[in-house]
């Protein structure tokens, strides 16, 4: 199966390890992720105001590319646009929803893009987790070569996969999709409270004390419930929870570091992939000692 894939900026830089591990895992699951031949910024944190339509131009242009891919035969009647980055996912799906609910807004956007074909509203934005869910976690389990037995993982949803409700991939207060994913690769999902708490997001740029405090609270909560690692699908969450542990350690002397991984790294590992595909070198807190200790590396 070939499916259009939207990477977004960070997947080509600091989250390269999420992209590679996801693309290679998908292949094993019989899915070929076809990157959009042309793409631009997803339009992240598109304005929430009702009078700022122009900020939806970037996301809609990306949505339109999926229609073009179908017209050009790059994919066959496949209007789902696969995303990995939680923020891209949220931005694109939110814009898509606004266009569906306000056809007059779409007309205005298409007017601005008058040199191009225009967006017809056919694209459906999905996240990699949803793709896995549609395949069936029982089917994923069947493909697992190295079940990650004994590994206790806290599923971190953050904001962008769940909220607002109309774009979320699961219940905003009681999501289960990442738990189910963790079980399917043979690891043990840990129930915890901080799974949907915001990591502090872009405050990491100019107000990083906020992020340091939140990262401390989130990781401590995971630890309290017995987790040995946290997984996420958001490159910004990953940075705030992983790289910021440097500052967390400086500020909170009793703090014990914890590896933070992209979900796809563990998926790849469980599917039997190795080496560079896993991209474990790119993680700030080295997850290899934990994985070795559990006998998975």
């Amino acid at each position: 199966m070939k499916i259009p894939y939207y990477p977004g900026c960070t997947l080509k830089t600091t989250a390269r390890n999420m992209e590679i591990s996801a693309i290679e895992s998908a292949k094993i699951l019989g899915i070929e992720m076809i990157e959009l031949p042309r793409w631009n910024c997803c339009g992240v944190v598109a304005s929430l105001t009702s009078d700022d339509l122009i900020s939806h131009l970037a996301p809609v242009r990306n949505l339109m590319r999926v229609e073009e891919m179908n017209e050009e035969g790059l994919v066959e009647n496949e209007y789902r646009m696969l995303t990995l980055c939680s923020m891209c996912f949220n931005t694109l799906r939110r814009s898509n929803l606004r266009m569906a609910e306000n056809p007059e807004d779409l007309i205005s956007i298409n007017d601005v893009m008058y040199l191009e074909k225009g967006y017809d509203g056919k694209t459906e934005v999905i996240h990699f987790f949803e793709l896995l869910d549609s395949i069936g976690f029982d089917k994923i389990e069947e493909k697992v070569k190295k079940p990650l037995t004994g590994l206790k993982i806290a599923p971190y949803y953050g904001c962008m996969l769940l909220r607002p409700k109309e774009v979320g991939i699961d219940s905003p207060e009681d999501p289960t999709i990442i738990q189910r994913f963790i079980s399917s690769i043979g690891a043990e999902p840990v129930p915890w409270e901080a799974k949907t708490i915001c990591c502090g997001s872009y405050h990491t740029v100019s107000n990083k004390d906020i992020v340091i405090k939140l990262a401390y609270e989130i990781i401590t909560n995971a630890r309290k419930h017995g987790a040995e690692a946290i997984i996420t699908s958001c490159p910004l969450c990953a940075f705030n929870l992983d790289d910021r542990q440097k500052e967390v350690r400086e500020k909170y002397l009793n703090f014990e570091p914890m590896p933070v991984l992209y979900f796809s790294q563990l998926l790849a590992l469980a599917l039997g992939l190795e080496g560079e595909t896993l991209g474990l070198e790119q993680n700030y807190i080295d997850p290899k000692p934990l994985l070795k200790e559990k006998g998975h590396l």
Partner: peptide
């Protein structure tokens, strides 16, 4: 924002911060 921070920070953090602020 110092250079070192710039280098390691994910693109999306910078884009988001600039868009919002």
């Amino acid at each position: 924002i110092d250079r070192e921070e710039y280098r390691k920070m994910p693109t999306i953090a910078l884009v988001s911060a600039y868009r919002k602020l």
